[in-house]
Design a protein around this nucleic acid. Structure first.
Lengths: 291, 291
DNA sequence: GTTCCGCATGAATCGATAG
DNA sequence: ACTATCGATTCATGCGGAA
């Protein structure tokens, strides 16, 4: 006989779904300790006012803390929370709300385990008299306890100088292309490196932003959540993104055979994400079966 | 007739010298507003209390603030302070003293202008169950005012390989099109790139750590201070490093024809730095003259 | 079915202008 | 004085359609 010993009475929600609504409200309906990984990129302060409601800089920390508190509750004890964020400039200075957020989240009981750097190889162009182009974002890792699950072998990379420079880029492309043909085996290039020794990566990720000319603009490339999903979960695990946006995290979960729960406030984005998900499903499982 | 209008009576010290002594004490002997650039990598916080490099973690901010206050005083109004630092892990967590330091230095009146990432391409090897190798450090830029000197052209980098193919043959549209009528308000004129050999860098620096076979281990490669020296000073300007260590900043100044002032507490390191400087001088100016 | 090549797009930021 | 909007600047990439 299996007994559910969770005191919390809130039921585990339907998986692989996007829930439309305010992030904090939806989070409060979720049960304790059932999510393996949280990956999200919340609306940045005072940004994208035309799509999301911009959070004023001086209110950002107070706005986020109730959410991070709920995230802490729903995350499993050995789970991980990855927060992709970068502070903008204002008045010629970098703003400090992210720093303050880290300090406040520690007071909530989070452990600030690591800070990964996402190096955006194709960052936004432009020239200013007092600064260069911003080519990196923070991926902050938070945990509930010192012992957490981590599957380092899942993200090993090929060794050698050639991989660091020229072929590092190709590898990402080949991985993505390989994922798109389900079970079709590895391509030529991929099998080339499989014969070689592989090493563990560092805490600096070199990924390009995607520039698809469709209507939806993903704020991060598919490979970003994919990397963390591989690193911190195994198949059938549950991944939560409380700010789903155009659904990139959900898509990464589908392709990696993980369960996802998405939350998104704007119906427009929910539909966009769902259609991207449906597209992928049709092209793969459903599509091939119909033929 | 030239009148020195500085109220401060402390004289400008002899340039191109390393001053042995406690950093705070030596700084207090320096006059106001005479340094163009401060570049330093202070001793990191550590739990080991015995070593010179061991400022206890919980005392680090209080230890540094009097120093940063003096640095603010000796820096010219349009000068820049670059602080190379990275927080250690302790007890499985990233420590927060660097974040706290930024917030406290802002209270002192510093502007936190930018955070550059030094990506260490060949970072220290190793493997741990709960984290990957740390391949980056912060280079925090602080200024006294929004207007500061910056010589961006001095650090331009070769244009990416994309230009070789992309610009090989321009279409008619490339020559004509100027404005993109998409909502982004971002236009381009590809023909602008014709003949362009170099572009401005980003705020991510890709530098390898040097593996010198001399006895001392520099905490950063020569190319790190060199990059910032080129960016924020011109020839004959004065660069200060209040934690000189093995003298890398001084060497960078010599090679770039800038004046340096170094401060170093340990006599052993002063000698090491001085001998490195003398070696270089002998190999270049002095050496060739002697022949 | 591959490879090649054109090209729209970007979590940007500053300074000027307008309200 | 202080805030909101707008134009100018600029680089590398993934994607889609052509060869």
């Amino acid at each position: 006989m299996v007994i559910d010993v969770r005191i919390d009475s809130r039921p585990v929600p339907e998986l692989d779904r996007i829930y439309e609504g305010d992030s904090l409200s939806v989070l409060k309906s979720l049960p304790d300790s059932f999510v393996n990984l949280i990956f999200t990129s919340p609306p940045y302060a005072d940004n994208r006012e035309k799509t999301y409601k911009g959070i004023p800089i001086n209110e950002y920390v107070d706005w986020f803390l109730p959410i991070s508190s709920e995230l802490q509750r729903v995350l499993k004890e050995d789970g991980t929370f990855i927060l992709n964020i970068k502070e903008r400039t204002a008045n010629g200075e970098r703003q400090t709300y992210v720093l303050e957020l880290i300090l406040e989240m520690k007071k909530q009981g989070w452990l600030w385990t690591e800070e990964y750097i996402w190096h955006k190889k194709n960052c936004y162009p432009g020239k200013w008299p007092n600064r260069f182009r911003d080519a990196w974002e923070r991926c902050l890792q938070f945990n509930k306890q010192k012992q957490f699950r981590m599957y380092q072998d899942a993200v090993k990379v090929p060794i050698g100088d050639w991989s660091k420079t020229r072929l590092a880029k190709l590898s990402e492309i080949d991985k993505i292309r390989d994922e798109s043909r389900v079970g079709s085996g590895f391509g030529k290039n991929v099998s080339n490196w499989l014969g070689r020794r592989s090493v563990y990566p560092t805490n600096v990720l070199h990924l390009s932003t995607e520039c698809s000319n469709r209507g939806h603009s993903a704020s991060f490339p598919l490979s970003l959540p994919t990397w963390f999903i591989k690193l911190f979960t195994v198949e059938k695990d549950i991944v939560l993104d409380p700010f789903m946006g155009s659904g990139t995290t959900a898509l990464a979960c589908l392709k990696q055979n993980r369960h996802y729960i998405g939350i998104e406030a704007m119906g427009k984005y929910c539909e966009l994400a769902q259609s991207a998900i449906d597209d992928w499903k049709n092209r793969n499982n459903g599509g091939s079966k119909l033929l």
